[in-house]
């Protein structure tokens, strides 16, 4: 017998709202990211966490204290954090003799660890070191992935998926053209490095409708290289990528649109029974009550007789 969780009713309206919000939704909002430190961190790592937190804001949360967590040995404390703070994405920074300047990026599904990748911060220049103008908070960036390496190894494939998940914010229906002002570029070089660059986009006149794009680096400028990784369980990933029935587009049958834009529908009518067709009603053709009664009795006797015949046949 398993324990029944949450049987106590929320006492306040606010508490009820919070609980309702935590329930699974068909359309999920932007994923929140949690930034926190491990046992020890270096300046580099702390700066990077802060910068990425600034980029990810407002869907981000940063914990300031140190945590005694070795995530590859035991991920439960991180799962607990992510559950408590409702953030399926996390980034942990740490620094040790064995693994200096360490960053772990990962994500959760249903409060359990889905996948994570450990990265070494080889070089880092922060947001502050670039004297460029900054971007608007909470803007949807363009994501550019350069290099054929992204498709060549399982780790990089996963890392690409994590990066998209981390930075794309949310799927939107409409985008304001003048609002495209940030580009994040992820470059996987053949020598195993991952270079992250961030640029502000300037839209210049080009003489036609589409503008000429100019970029200016705004930082952070980070060079990563891969360390350990935990790839997702295939079944769990499949389960996590399931699309709700409500969002699936079902094909509408028998509806076509022709070249002129008129919609045509084809409908199916069952075969017509001519015997039951209602023709002109006449009093003379109407059955009397006695006639109707006799007809009913006749049907009844036929049924009873057939049953009796069957029984007699069985008796032999």
């Amino acid at each position: 017998m398993s324990v029944i969780q949450r049987v106590v009713k929320p006492t306040t309206r606010k508490g009820k709202k919070v609980l309702l919000k935590r329930e699974p939704q068909v359309i999920e909002g932007p994923k929140r990211a949690l930034f926190f430190q491990g046992r020890k961190t270096s300046d580099k790592v702390r700066g990077l966490l802060k910068d990425l937190y600034d980029i990810k804001k407002p869907d981000a949360l940063k914990l300031s204290r140190k945590n005694d967590i070795t995530i590859f040995e035991n991920a439960t404390p991180v799962e607990a954090f992510c559950k408590k703070l409702e953030s399926p994405l996390f980034m942990m920074g740490s620094h040790s003799k064995k693994r200096p300047d360490n960053i772990v990026v990962g994500r959760m599904y249903n409060y359990t660890l889905l996948d994570m990748i450990e990265l070494y911060v080889e070089s880092y220049e922060g947001l502050k070191e670039f004297a460029a103008s900054k971007i608007t908070l909470g803007i949807k960036p363009c994501l550019i992935f350069n290099g054929p390496q992204w498709e060549q190894s399982e780790e990089l494939k996963q890392l690409k998926s994590i990066f998209i998940d981390f930075f794309h914010r949310e799927h939107v229906e409409n985008v304001r053209l003048q609002g495209i002002e940030h580009t994040l570029s992820f470059n996987a070089t053949p020598d195993g490095k991952i270079l992250l660059r961030s640029y502000k986009v300037f839209l210049k006149k080009s003489g036609c409708r589409t503008p000429r794009v100019e970029l200016e680096e705004i930082g952070p400028r980070v060079d990563f290289s891969l360390r350990r990784s935990k790839l997702p369980d295939e079944d769990l990933m499949k389960e996590a990528c399931r699309k709700p029935k409500e969002l699936k587009v079902t094909k509408k049958k028998n509806i076509t649109t022709d070249e002129l834009g008129t919609t045509r529908g084809r409908i199916h009518i069952g075969r017509q029974d001519i015997n039951k067709l209602q023709t002109r009603k006449m009093k003379g053709l109407k059955k009397t009550a006695a006639e109707r009664k006799a007809e009913k009795a006749k049907i009844k006797t036929i049924i009873v007789n057939s049953d009796m015949n069957a029984v007699n046949e069985m008796r032999g």
């Binding site: 999920e28 994923k31 399926p88 998209i164 939107v172 053209l177 996590a240 990528c241 399931r242 699309k243």
Partner: peptide
Amino acid sequence: PTEQIEESIVVKLPPQKTVLPRMKPVPK
């Protein structure tokens, strides 16, 4: 295709092609 919404020009984006994992299971 573009559209005008309150003094700004917006484009209608097609649905996402990249499949990303959900945060929580599909609601039953």
